[in-house]
Amino acid sequence: MADLSVNICGIPFKNPIIPASGVFGYGREYEQYYELSRLGGIATKGTTGTKRTGNLPPRVAETPMGMLNSVGLQNPGIDAFIANELPHLLACDTVILANIAGSTAEECAEVAAKLDKTDVHMIELNISCPNVRQGGAAFGTSCTAASQVVAAVRKATSKPLVVKLSPNVTSITEIAKAVAAEGADAVSLINTLLGMRIDLRTRRPILHNNMGGFSGPAIFPVAVRMVWQVANAVDVPVIGMGGVMSGEDAAELMMAGASAVQVGTAIVQDPYAPLRIIDELNDWLDSNHIASAAELTGSVKPW
């Protein structure tokens, strides 16, 4: 049994596998399948200042080795999250990363300030949602806007702040450097790639929002590349994600530079995916005589 524990920004994780924001709701649906304490952490559904109803359906389309989604940050708002969901999550004996988003820097800061008064372990600021018109990716695709929103949120909280980055940019390393300079304690990447599918019969895009976020194993090589680039560009820890389906994928993303790994689409397919990936990572470490998962981080030997 390898030592799977990792530490990010001083927060101990019992293992590096974390359900990614959006696929796991606030955890309740998965408790019927297993105890959430088995997970390294949980990144909760993106939560905004006020309730959002989300986008018109259809909100999902299958693609070769992946999927598109355009949920549009449907959530009950931060007050309902803190009152109705957070106490339960904090009793689950796992690290809670509260994922937050907003249309303006002020909204993001206001949400962070409310969470600052709670016992949540970390805040993950989403500056990369491709499915909302304002905020979301608009923050994450310009260094200036990214800096401004991170600076505002940084002022609002002393919690460890993870900033979730968009891959839909010319240079993700520039964005990563900008948010680290404004006080981000860690970065997580990659959010979904912007994609689109069309129904040939109706000539309508399958998603009602026309475009949506592309995820799943098809994007895994992009995630490995961007995690590697960002890990080499900033001094803060990197939480990697993007199409991880197996323990070996998780090991690969850690070698590229990730300190922990989020799992999204694999859970949409199979609720047990995070547990299977934890077991597979452990088995891979054991069979390769590696004592600790943390040793993997950044251990790639580039040419």
Partner: peptide, 24 residues
Amino acid sequence: ERMGCGIGACLVCACRTVDPDGTE
């Protein structure tokens, strides 16, 4: 509706409903 997780977490299979008080 086009569906994802099937257990109510991923929120993709949305259907517009109206509550008795008229809230959509």
